[in-house]
Simulated scan of single mutants.
Amino acid sequence: MSSNTPLVEVQDLSKTFDVSLPWLNRVLERKERLFVHAVDGVSFAIERGTTLALVGESGCGKSTVARLLVGLYEPTRGSVSFDGVDAARTLASRDGLTLRRRMQMIFQDPYASLNPRWKVQEIVAEPLREHGLVSGAGELRERVGELLRSVGLTASDGDKFPHQFSGGQRQRISIARALATQPEFLVCDEPTSALDVSVQAQVLNLMKDLQRQRGLSYLFISHNLAVVRHVADRVGVMYLGRLVELAPKAELFARPRHPYTRMLLDAIPDIHMTGRSRTPVQGEVPNPLQPPSGCSFHPRCPHANERCKAERPVLRVDATSVQVACHAVEERRI
């Protein structure tokens, strides 16, 4: 494919979960079937060698997007295209293993994502064996040693068990395992949220270094805008399964358009004591089983009017390549 083509293209991606009671309970209690639209019509693209971050409060659908991209969930609607091919169709075919080599995932909890009964050597070696990338025990051990050194550990750490490492070191092991197949694309689902702040910085710096060295592309899931500011090239803000704003990082932090983005940024502690008036995030995320009509953010929005309550906004691109889904922005009320 042309280097101008985005590595990852997502079109109208949706995932609906059936959370109904069992059939007999529904009949006896006369209850309707219940569905949650965890992801509802999300579209974006990720250029080669860049990082797109998805941010939003818990339950907005960020992690579901991550799992859809790597094939852990099947989309209800829409498509994920990887290097010009349909990812879901390819993953289900004989070429699926080849595609899985090219995209890997780093999970949120380094304590749960590593098998406690395996030594680190076996954990990092598993994808090498699975994809037939090495032949012989000597080459396998050497390759695992290289991977551990590339994430700031030593080859001798391969002889230890996960419980002998700190949280930050465990996440480095997870990164080494993800890099084993020499992927082009990493999906990072809140990879630093379980770590101390000082350790977060070390892991984020490591990921940025690896991106520069290997030309990696990242989808970075986070609820922490300070982390996003450090790693992202572009930022997508999600609310109740939909993208409400998608913008280059510098533009989003300097001139946030959507009222929800503004609220998220105002919630960041003001360490520079600028004296700027701040509006903390108001209210609670609505029940996803009964989302509000129209714009799903309107019950919490200080700029909502009757149109916001009745009509769902769509993402529109402005002159600075920022995409915003907001009637108030469109009508220049804010």
Rank of each mutant, 00 (worst) to 15 (best):
T279W: 01
G275T: 11
V231I: 15
L264I: 04
P286V: 02
E245M: 03
P280E: 00
H223C: 10
P291Q: 11
V244D: 06
T279A: 14
K249L: 14
A304T: 04
Q290L: 12
L315V: 14
H272N: 15
L252C: 09
P288K: 03
H303N: 13
Y239R: 05
A232N: 00
A247K: 12
R312G: 00
P256G: 09
F297T: 02
D270G: 10
F297P: 05
V237P: 08
H303V: 00
P302A: 14
C295T: 00
R300M: 13
A247D: 11
P291V: 08
H223Q: 15
V235I: 14
G241S: 06
L315R: 10
E251M: 09
L252G: 10
P313I: 08
D233M: 07
M238S: 05
E306L: 02
E311D: 14
P291E: 09
E284T: 14
A304E: 04
E251I: 00
L243M: 15
G275R: 09
H272T: 14
P288S: 05
V227L: 02
A310W: 00
E245F: 03
Y239N: 03
E284Y: 10
E245L: 02
D233N: 15
V235K: 11
R300V: 12
R312N: 01
I268C: 08
K249Q: 13
K309N: 10
R257M: 13
Q282N: 13
L240C: 11
L225G: 12
P291G: 09
D318G: 10
P313L: 01
K249P: 00
A247N: 12
R242C: 02
L252Q: 13
R257N: 14
L243N: 03
E306P: 09
R242S: 12
